[in-house]
Amino acid sequence: MGIFGRKKKNDSPSGLPDLDERSFPEALSSNRKVVVDCWNTHCAPCRKVHPIMEELAGKYGTIFFAKLNTDEHVSIAVEHGVMSVPTILFFKDGEMVGALAGTTSREDIESALKEKLEV
């Protein structure tokens, strides 16, 4: 998976790249707009978000979409104020510009993406 982290077996249904302590800052510095799907394996609602994120990744080609397993990389999650999953983090020019916690609605996610990343 190159700089964006390794893909784990039975990881999640999402094919989006996994971020870790090394690839997280790299993703932010090498992409203008980044969306991160924070999830963990115990989280059933997270599984509802993954396919929506994949769909949006196909639709918005200029945005880098990735995911973060909060069990494995809890420090990154906590550092960004994540206290609940699913949470989606939005970054622009390396800065966090917003977060969306708890929703599994495609409409809500897409409208947050449009608003926060101005697409």
Binding site: N40, C43, C46, M83, S84, V85, P86, T87, A101
Partner: peptide
Amino acid sequence: SGRGVSYCSTCDGFFF
């Protein structure tokens, strides 16, 4: 909600 209020213990328990 999502900043301390949760409806899913298995999802969010680890943060606490």
